Amino acid sequence: MPRLLLASNSPRRRQLLTDLGLTYEVRLKEVDEAYPEHLQRAEIAEYLAAHKASAYRTDLEPDDVLLTADTIVCLGAEVLNKPADEVEAVRMLTQLQGRAHDVYTGVCLLTGQGQQVVFSDQTRVHFRPLSEAEIRYYVRNYHPLDKAGAYGAQDWIGLVAVTRLEGSYFNVMGLPVHRVYEELEKLGFGVGQS
């Protein structure tokens, strides 16, 4: 029977897979998240997802399917990754407030037999203007240092700042579940298959 492995420490990704009704195991390794400078937007997210998967390639059994993902936030040409500290988180949110930005999540599905599927999804997120006090409140109380762009759409800031989405809300949370489910169905992980 095929076994689904999730290589992610993200509680949001775990919850989304659980909400899909899928049974899976979590596998974790430290993987460098550097990427070639010439890559842009969706290419970065897809590269990072595939790069993470390659670290597990030799660990997979023939029936295993590994899922890796990476989410990035782009404001124009600038990529806003996870902030290093609260000061950087405030800076990022100050840049994002009152503007629209793009969230890309790259996903890689790698089978134990070497088949690999890599794709990404994009969502445009519109933020209303925020005060410095609101930004500092969010960073101080929600500690978004583990999130690309220094925010989680499911957190307080998503409730008060996100005015409109063009694309998948779940993609902004870190996993385009509609696409993931579609690809996993092809590999035998749909409802009633696993």
Rank of each mutant, 00 (worst) to 15 (best):
V73L: 07
M92T: 02
E61Y: 13
V65R: 11
K29V: 06
E46A: 12
A42V: 09
T58V: 14
E46H: 07
G76N: 11
D32I: 04
A77D: 15
A55E: 02
L66I: 15
A49W: 00
T58I: 14
E43H: 09
V31K: 06
E61K: 15
E43F: 08
A89F: 02
N81R: 03
V65H: 12
L39D: 04
K52V: 07
V31G: 07
Q95A: 14
E86N: 12
C74H: 14
S54M: 08
A45P: 05
K82D: 08
T94E: 09
V65C: 15
V79N: 00
R41N: 08
M92A: 05
S54G: 03
V79K: 00
V65D: 11
D64G: 09
D59Y: 00
C74E: 11
L48T: 01
R91N: 05
V79F: 02
D70P: 07
R27A: 15
V90E: 12
K29G: 07
V31C: 07
E61L: 15
T71L: 11
D59I: 00
A50Y: 11
L28N: 09
E61H: 15
T23H: 12
Y56G: 05
E33V: 01
L60G: 03
L48I: 01
M92I: 00
P36T: 08
D32R: 05
D70Y: 10
Y47F: 15
T94R: 15
T23Q: 13
T23A: 13
E37D: 14
S54W: 06
E33Q: 03
R41F: 08
A53V: 02
Y47K: 05
L28Q: 11
Q40T: 14
R41G: 07
D32G: 05
A50N: 08
L93G: 03
L48Y: 04
Y56W: 10
A69W: 13
Y35S: 05
L48P: 03
A50S: 12
L67Y: 03
M92R: 02
K52N: 04
T71E: 09
A89R: 03
A84R: 14
V26P: 02
L28P: 01
R91G: 00
Y24M: 11
A50Q: 12
G76R: 12
P36N: 08
E25N: 09
L66R: 12
A69K: 12
V31M: 09
L67P: 00
D59T: 03
G76T: 08
E25K: 13
V87S: 10
V65S: 13
R57I: 11
V73T: 08
H38M: 06
V73G: 01
